[in-house]
């Protein structure tokens, strides 16, 4: 596998560092953006602003992690946004039907995660087992999932129970709830990075034929990647439900492409075989910081989307170029 070969060959210090930590360029961009945000609006580095940033972009962070697990193996999932919408609708409707108490919330969350898992399983079967082309097949399943979301909740608007969004936006021991989620996510990801499945997925992404010939169950590994992706999309749905406090069958539509952008910004190769989930989390934060920076520098409102688009395109190009420069 080329990843292993390049690692053994002698490299400059910086190259070796990026080889070991593919998310370093993303980290540099992130720090630069934080500094710029602080320059234009000192309050934006305050505790309150950072909390707001995280609670808004936690969903995208989760979704980017979800996307990473399929990109590892060289696949892509264009249905993550639709899965997010579906799970959002499912838990909103269940929580309302079950009365909105603590038990109802926990039950709905469990069902929601199972829904995400089932969606991921379907994607995995379609792409890994039936061997359809990932881009078009997951687009087809995204239409299917959106249809299901519309069936569960035809129009946006049903509110989440108070206990749900109060918890998400609340504090425990003076520390915002979302920080606990971030720490939990970090612990889970730190364990997952060392898991055998991660290595296996990267091996499949690097070269599926070689992986197969060395005895890896390629189909099963890709399938597991999609299942993981579904589960993390469901977790993203839990976050967005906490943030928006309502159900919307189309809430995730625009987020799919942002999740792909976040993965690329994080230094993960779309062709598979190398990358890191940490990078994807940073990538999601980069998108968030670009959006807030565009606001803080005082861009007129109708120009904001264009400037955001240009900045994200620029960051994408920069990330790809820097990663290539140190590791051709």
């Amino acid at each position: 596998m080329s990843a292993v070969e390049t690692r053994s060959s002698s490299r400059s210090g910086l190259g070796a560092l990026v080889e070991r930590f593919p998310f370093l360029p993303a980290l540099v961009i992130l720090v630069a953006l934080l500094a710029l945000n602080g320059w234009f609006q000192p309050n934006s580095l305050g505790f309150r602003a950072i909390t707001g940033l995280i609670s808004t972009y936690l969903a995208l962070m989760m979704l980017a992690v979800a996307q990473t697990y399929v990109v590892y193996a060289g696949d892509v999932d264009l249905s993550v946004g639709a899965i997010l919408s579906l799970v959002n609708c499912v838990i909103i409707v269940l929580m309302e039907r079950w009365g909105g108490g603590g038990v109802a919330v926990l039950g709905a969350i469990a069902i929601g995660i199972l829904t995400g898992l089932a969606c991921g399983l379907l994607n995995g079967i379609v792409v890994a087992v039936l061997r359809l082309q990932a881009i078009v097949a997951t687009f087809a399943t995204s239409i299917f999932f959106t249809g299901l979301a519309l069936y569960v909740l035809p129009v946006a608007g049903t509110p989440a129970p108070t206990v749900y969004w109060r918890t998400y936006g609340g504090r425990f021991f003076e520390i915002p709830f979302v920080f606990y989620v971030v720490v939990a996510l970090a612990i889970i990801l730190a364990i997952a990075v060392r898991a055998r499945l991660t290595t296996q997925m990267l091996a499949v992404g690097d070269d599926p034929f070689k992986a197969f010939q060395s005895g890896l169950p390629v189909t099963a590994i890709r399938l597991k990647g999609y299942v993981l992706c579904g589960v993390f999309s469901a977790l993203a749905a839990l976050c967005i439900t906490g943030d928006t406090a309502s159900g919307d069958p189309l809430v995730g539509g625009a987020m799919t492409l942002y999740s792909v952008a976040a993965v690329v910004l994080g230094g993960t190769a779309l062709s598979g075989g190398r990358g890191s989930v940490v990078g994807s989390v940073l990538g999601a934060l980069i998108i968030g910081l670009i959006n807030s920076l565009v606001f803080y520098v005082g861009t007129p409102s109708q120009w904001q989307n264009l400037v955001q688009g240009l900045a994200i395109l620029l960051a994408l190009m920069l990330g790809v170029l820097v990663t290539r420069r140190v590791r051709p």
Partner: peptide
């Protein structure tokens, strides 16, 4: 730049 990434970024610019 991989085509998916490049054209995705361009889509964002066009929408803006």
């Amino acid at each position: 730049i991989p085509p998916l990434v490049m054209t995705l970024g361009m889509l964002g610019v066009l929408q803006g």
